[in-house]
Amino acid sequence: MFAKQLIASTAESVALAEHDAPIVDAPLALQLLHRQAGFAQWKIVFPGSAVLSPGVCAILGLPTRETPLPLPEMVECYHEEDRGKLLYLIAQALEGRRGFHCRLRVVQPDGTVRMAESYADLRIHDGRVTELFGLTRDVTATLERESAGLARTRMAQDIIAQMPAPIAVLDDKLRIVDCNKFWLKCHRQIDRKDVVGRSYNQLFPDAPAEVRTEFMRGLRGEVVQTKRKLVSGSTQQPMTCSAVIAPWFVGGDKIGGVTIMIGWSEFGMVASAPAPAPQDNAPTFDGSLLDLAKQVG
């Protein structure tokens, strides 16, 4: 878990750059960071001892201590696959005079894996790096929520890819974000990479004006039930298919773009399934997605 959410990147050191003078006392600012964002302090004094605040000890699963901890013992608190990343960042800090940002896994004494995010920088004295100091916080809960969101996104992508109907997802600038092979085929496109990132207007400059109007209605929050004129793949005759344009949302109620789904009337039936008995009040069904939705909704 969390393997795809790891970060290990260097950054310019503030010790080598000009910066604004502090407005409030540093201890007060650090207390605010700890209380509101969960950051706790630590420092590494070279050649190799670590001074950890009680907050960092709790994150690493260590008992609170008043004496420095040997650096190797602090590194051993991290997941065995991530220790090399941490040591590399520390080495880069010494050799390249650079700070770093990382999100690495910590293994608690009971085996629980947590994710610790750290920001680090240097203290330089007489041209020599004497200390590495930083802030660390536990971001496990935040990344679990991100992971759940990524899982839902992956599920939606899989559904779109496998759905036996033309589906495309557009962003709020009407650029193609995703589509499936059926959408590519019915729009005479060959490869997904040829359309993703391009705008609908670029791909179909001759599309009727009402098509863009329908997309704009979707971007305003409407679910648009419309028609699309296509050509039958089996008979090569013109056919009119039902379609749905629906908004999709990011961050609650902010519209991120629209999804268009196209149905068609050449709809097969499972051979082993008996035909349902006719009903006097049964709704008509021409095989389109809209009529199917009416029946199951």
Rank of each mutant, 00 (worst) to 15 (best):
P70F: 01
P63W: 14
F100E: 00
M74S: 05
S49T: 15
S53Q: 04
L87Y: 00
V113N: 02
E95N: 15
P68C: 13
E95S: 14
Y78Q: 08
E117Y: 05
R123Q: 12
V107T: 09
R103M: 14
Y88T: 12
Y78A: 02
A58K: 10
T67W: 02
I90T: 09
A50K: 00
G61R: 09
L87E: 14
A116V: 10
L89C: 10
V113L: 03
R83N: 04
G61I: 12
R98C: 15
E80V: 09
C57P: 01
V51M: 12
D121W: 10
P109C: 02
V107Q: 09
E76W: 01
P54G: 07
G84L: 09
D82I: 01
T64Q: 14
L94W: 07
R105C: 06
S53K: 02
E80Y: 02
E76F: 01
V75L: 10
L52M: 10
R83Q: 15
R123L: 13
Y119H: 11
H101P: 02
V107M: 05
P70C: 00
D121C: 09
V107E: 09
P63C: 12
G96F: 01
A50R: 04
E81W: 01
E73N: 06
L62S: 03
S118I: 00
P72K: 04
R105N: 06
M115T: 06
E73S: 04
R105V: 02
R123G: 11
T67N: 07
E76I: 03
E95L: 14
D82Q: 03
V51Q: 11
C102K: 04
G61A: 03
L89S: 06
S53I: 03
G111R: 13
A58S: 13
R114P: 00
R98D: 13
T112C: 00
E95W: 10
L60E: 06
L94P: 00
G84V: 09
S49R: 15
P68S: 10
H101F: 13
A120P: 05
P72C: 06
F100Q: 02
R98E: 15
P63R: 15
V107P: 03
S49D: 15
S53P: 01
V51T: 10
E66L: 06
G84I: 04
L86A: 04
F100I: 03
L104T: 11
L87D: 09
Q108F: 00
S53F: 01
I124C: 10
C102D: 07
G111I: 09
A50G: 06
E66T: 12
P109Y: 09
A91E: 14
A91G: 11
R123S: 12
R114W: 04
C77E: 01
V113G: 01
K85W: 12
L52Y: 07
L104F: 11
L69G: 05
A50M: 04
E73L: 07
I124G: 12
P68R: 11
R98Y: 02
L71V: 06
